[in-house]
Design a protein around this nucleic acid. Sequence first.
DNA 1: AATGAATGAGTTTTCATTCAT
DNA 2: GATGAATGAAAACTCATTCAT
Lengths: 225, 225, 225, 225
Amino acid sequence: MPKLGMEPIRKAALVKATIAEIGAVGSLDVTVAQIARRAGMSSALAHHYFGGKEQIFLAAMRHILALYGAEVRAALANINGPSGRNACPKARILAVIGASFADSNFRQEVVSAWLHFYVLAQTVPEARRLLRVYQRRLRANLLYGLRPLFVGMPGAAETGAAETVADGIGAMVDGLYIRLALARGPMGLGPIDRVRAGQMVADYLEMNLRAGCLGGVPLGLGRTH
Amino acid sequence: MPKLGMEPIRKAALVKATIAEIGAVGSLDVTVAQIARRAGMSSALAHHYFGGKEQIFLAAMRHILALYGAEVRAALANINGPSGRNACPKARILAVIGASFADSNFRQEVVSAWLHFYVLAQTVPEARRLLRVYQRRLRANLLYGLRPLFVGMPGAAETGAAETVADGIGAMVDGLYIRLALARGPMGLGPIDRVRAGQMVADYLEMNLRAGCLGGVPLGLGRTH
Amino acid sequence: MPKLGMEPIRKAALVKATIAEIGAVGSLDVTVAQIARRAGMSSALAHHYFGGKEQIFLAAMRHILALYGAEVRAALANINGPSGRNACPKARILAVIGASFADSNFRQEVVSAWLHFYVLAQTVPEARRLLRVYQRRLRANLLYGLRPLFVGMPGAAETGAAETVADGIGAMVDGLYIRLALARGPMGLGPIDRVRAGQMVADYLEMNLRAGCLGGVPLGLGRTH
Amino acid sequence: MPKLGMEPIRKAALVKATIAEIGAVGSLDVTVAQIARRAGMSSALAHHYFGGKEQIFLAAMRHILALYGAEVRAALANINGPSGRNACPKARILAVIGASFADSNFRQEVVSAWLHFYVLAQTVPEARRLLRVYQRRLRANLLYGLRPLFVGMPGAAETGAAETVADGIGAMVDGLYIRLALARGPMGLGPIDRVRAGQMVADYLEMNLRAGCLGGVPLGLGRTH
DNA sequence: AATGAATGAGTTTTCATTCAT
DNA sequence: GATGAATGAAAACTCATTCAT
């Protein structure tokens, strides 16, 4: 009987090496040989286990998403016991937002992987699917906290207020993430740091809630001209 | 007899061809030969004029930025005569936002170029510089409209309210752009279309203004727990 | 406890799998891994039993030849009891010819194997040896029937008439086989089918006998100019 | 202006090198790099001009066929002036047969190429097409000489005698060619050499004509039992 | 100004083969 | 007996770049 069970070990090593290599090179132009070398094996073995370069990349993407998912779960667990069930809705939302700006997401390799991800999503169906998974998951997590907050608010259900706010938060998170990720050094008056970014999204949420509470129409205000 | 003045013509043709080819292929993996063929010349000539592939890409980026800038200027001109000087501040801001979601920015080649842009910005200094130019210009355009709106608002100057709102708008624009660009088909309950995206950013602006007018603190509300 | 007697079973399975795989792929580019997978074992085991890819191929060739030999023996047995001893000579020859055009020889995998065979025979001594074995066996089988027919024919012995006819039949069989094997669909006025091919060879035999009987010289007629 | 008109020169050199290399290696396993080196250029250039390995091989095949065609034309021209129009039919046929056994067809590289050809014809459509071209051309050349010989022969038209004889000659030529090509050294009683091979085919023709002249049925004699 | 010619260096991928278990 | 693990060597193919003309 040969050495057994190497496949998951090797695959994991390759995934880690892929992310590390992308981070080190800072670009998508990493070769299978580089990845394999970093993972301590021949490139032939990498092909053997994954079947091709694209598959390796997709596995790395899945890993990145899994890390992000873990970060979110950890943040939720932190709020009110491991279940997170009893957390107040707003705290849930803020936890999700905070997880998106967690340290771990800004390591250079992760940033590179995310940008790579966006590019791949244009042409590789599986990459697009994964991106959708991320977006849907984020949306669902946010909605879980948002819906209770809009209950009873007049017009909120009809206008889909919770959904719109979820999309707005998601977009803001993504936009701030890219700006943070690509901003080394100040970018204007004051640098946007991770904390301030989280604050900005939190404020977006708060304003939407207030607008609702005040009887205003949180969305569809219309352009003034 | 050398043909005179060919250089700008050739360069322009190559830039257009680059963007077109990126759009056609849907990815960054376009070769110089493909670009040159599309531009109706030999790849050797492309090298002659630009010196290398990276330079070609950067020129294309500059072109994309120039197009975006033109779109913004046109939108501003539309508001209150060609000078745009007299437009009411809010209209200015909305015009800038609208220009970001203009049709022309969503042609596939432009989307691909932008994503490419983000990736390049990680490693190529000139690309990073260009990205900064874009961000600063957007910020400046927004601030030009925002500052008057926050004048006299208590605490606005100290907290840098206008700047923060400008950054928030910028982030939201970027985040929504990527989501729109990569979303073919619905992405949840209702698809985010360009109009709705513009609306969401406009609402973000409006809420910030109201929060201020109402005596609230538009930013730095602080997390509620 | 080692399983005993596995070797012949495994080898046979590999030989069958080799032929099947060649047929399935329709070319010589089959890998050991493919063959082994089809045979239900690891490629390492295939190597263990055969020592190398070439050996596997040669074993497959031997199998093909054995099948052909069996086909011939069956045809001969069919004529006049299982011994075939008492069959009239001409019937023997026709039986041998018929066996060459038997259905089993035209299955795609067998065709591919034969063509592979010819190619290998150029460089691999053992393949050449096997090809000779086939040719000699065919020749001997034909001569066994031809010699009695030329006995007493004037000049036949001196000119080696029987041998020449045997060679002619062999060449015609090979030539028709290749044409049939590679001809899917009509190849001119009327398609050459297996029956017609057998007929043509039979006619060749008949004409040679008549030419002899008529006192003509069956061979060495000489070019007329 | 750069060096011009290299393409046909390079292509011709590659075709020649391909055939030479196949002959030298004696097998189909020649690499593009080997071919290119023999042709005195980089493998990249070979790819540039031909687009791929298969295309190179097909060009080589076409060349082999062209050489064969030239051989046939030369043989025909030899008979009765360059036009060959006035040659007696039988002489035409013998010339075609003779061309098939010309020296040039038995150089090792040509033999290897032909065998390769047969293998390729199984899977590569263009190779199959070329093989058909060869077969049809041979058939047409033979028929051009055969038809006059069967004119007025009772039953010849109905049974398609000329066509059948053409197919028989073609098959015999192919079969003898392969045997000759693979036979280095004696192969039985007496070696089949090129002259004897031609003789055998000539005799096949002669017998068919005599069978007809004698009032017999040249083909479709039927098996005697 | 312009380009066909040419290539070196590098990419992914394949595969027969070996080896420890 | 049997196999998963592992790889070196080599394959086809690509491409940015250079150069002579």
